[in-house]
């Protein structure tokens, strides 16, 4: 594998977006890019990552390779990332380490790190990325982050309901309750503020607040978030990158007994 990002912060943002949710991950590299899937220890949150060749300045993968890494270690190396530097990932044919080369041609500087790869045995789950959903919402990731931060302070359970009137996020704590209603809007001046809802039926689902706090850490990937809800599947919270691919979080709901 030889894959070069023209801006090293792209890879840093991707890794930082889920490093607190899961401890280790297998990156599966092939001609069609880098894909990964990891599940948190409680098996409630599933992270999917897709970095297609379009995200790279140059991308080459001669034969399919799996790169297992501890995210805490990789995240430490990526602290060196900045918008002035490129980052090339190299993995040899017999992979036992990942080489990260940061280059800042303007400053005549380069940095080289090696990360020992780990053998991770993890189940791959069959996730249909075109999963049918009853409700799809596209909204500002900034707005979503603020709503989650504000409401999750009040309760460890978080409810999302969508009707034709809009999307309602609500919490009911022991001493306080809160509700945020967001209605579809079109902001011609700033498209990232738009909120659109497409739905075939109403939904009313509950989730554990702590996972939503993990999910919003990915908001730096995109100023938009796509939400997909159905009564009988995990919800999908997806951040898509400008150049294709992105990071998705499947979150299993809480149901009444």
């Amino acid at each position: 594998l030889e894959a070069k990002f023209d801006d090293s912060t792209i890879f840093k943002k991707i890794i930082d977006s889920f490093k607190d949710s899961v401890t280790q991950i297998n990156f599966v590299c092939s001609e069609s890019g880098i894909e990964a899937q990891a599940i948190d220890d409680s098996r409630v949150l599933l992270v999917t990552v897709s970095i297609p060749p379009s995200c790279f300045e140059s991308y080459r993968c001669d034969r399919p390779t799996t790169i297992g890494v501890y995210l805490a270690s990789l995240a430490k190396l990526l602290k060196s990332a900045n918008t002035n530097s490129s980052l090339t990932l190299y993995v040899a044919d017999k992979p036992d380490e990942l080489l990260l080369l940061f280059e800042e041609p303007k400053n005549q500087k380069s940095m080289e790190y090696k990360l020992k790869l780990v053998d991770i045995t993890a189940d791959m789950l069959e996730v249909d990325s075109d999963m049918k959903s009853d409700v799809t919402v596209e909204m500002s990731s900034v707005e979503f982050t603020k709503t989650v931060r504000d409401l999750t302070q009040l309760s460890d359970s978080f409810t999302v309901s969508v009707t034709k009137d809009g999307i309602v996020f609500s919490v009911q704590g022991d001493t306080a309750q809160g509700k945020v209603l967001l209605q579809p809007r079109e902001d011609l001046a700033d498209e990232s503020n738009n909120l659109s809802i497409s739905m075939s039926k109403t939904i009313d689902l509950s989730f554990a607040s702590k996972y939503l706090l993990d999910i919003i850490k990915a908001a730096s990937i995109s100023n938009k978030i796509f939400l997909k809800f159905s009564d009988d599947t995990p919800a999908l919270f997806e951040f898509k990158m400008e150049k294709g691919g992105g990071v998705g979080f499947y979150l299993a709901p809480k149901y009444d007994d």
């Binding site: 599940i39 789950l125 009988d232 499947y250 299993a252 809480k254």
Partner: peptide, 14 residues
């Protein structure tokens, strides 16, 4: 009271 489901309740292992 609500029960927390897991991802395994919904997705099959490949």
């Amino acid at each position: 009271e609500k029960t927390q489901f897991t991802i395994d309740d919904f997705f099959e292992i490949m």
